[in-house]
């Protein structure tokens, strides 16, 4: 419980901080690095299915509160798709490393968001942005994947520390 709450809080803080940052000079408009995905990936890797679902739902709820209904739905659709993908990658597909997981997670997230855009705007023209998102996913995915690999020991430490606290 404590551990899930802690990681949920970290992921929400990361996504809120990210939305405050001005559009990254290197990234095209609308594209974000997806730092909170690092937490979802770690959760899928180490915490478990219900914990991961909880983090994704809370994250979308905060997106809904901060940026409105469309953003909330986009976050939810992207989160669910990338969550399923990450659980699968970390549990079944051992040949994929952290960078590959980051890229797949970003791709799934963008696919979910495009689907919601398509349903909201009602035109195939939204998929015109897909090529840009494909390229951006690779760049941001490599970054989040590398950050995930670097932070796993620290996250594991946190997880262990707070699970012990609970036993006392």
């Amino acid at each position: 419980m404590t551990v899930t709450a802690l990681f949920t809080a970290i992921s929400v803080v990361l996504s809120v901080l990210e939305s405050f940052l001005p559009t990254f000079a290197v990234l095209p408009p609308g594209a974000k690095p997806g730092l909170s995905n690092i937490i979802v990936m770690f959760s899928a890797l180490s915490l478990g299915v219900p914990q991961t679902v909880f983090i994704i739902l809370t994250k979308s709820f905060f997106a809904f509160l901060m940026r409105g209904a469309v953003a909330g739905l986009m976050s939810l659709a992207g989160g669910i798709l990338s969550g399923i993908c990450m659980l699968f990658v970390f549990r079944k597909l051992k040949i994929i490393g952290c960078v590959g997981a980051g890229v797949l997670s970003a791709l799934c997230h963008n696919t979910g968001q495009l689907l919601v855009s398509f349903l909201t705007v009602g035109t195939w023209a939204v998929f015109g942005y897909a090529p840009v998102l494909l390229i951006v996913s690779v760049v941001t995915g490599v970054i989040t994947g590398t950050l995930l690999k670097a932070s796993i020991p620290y996250f594991k430490g946190l997880e262990k520390h707070f699970s012990k606290e609970m036993e006392k």
């Binding site: 890797l45 490393g97 960078v99 590959g100 997981a101 890229v103 390229i135 996913s137 690779v138």
Partner: peptide, 24 residues
């Protein structure tokens, strides 16, 4: 423990990058 980078990762990244560039 998960590796940082595998051959499968390289393929995933390359396919996504190239298809994006081709579509552009």
């Amino acid at each position: 423990m998960k590796k940082l980078f595998t051959r499968a990762d390289l393929i995933i990244a390359a396919v996504a990058l190239l298809s994006g560039l081709a579509l552009l």
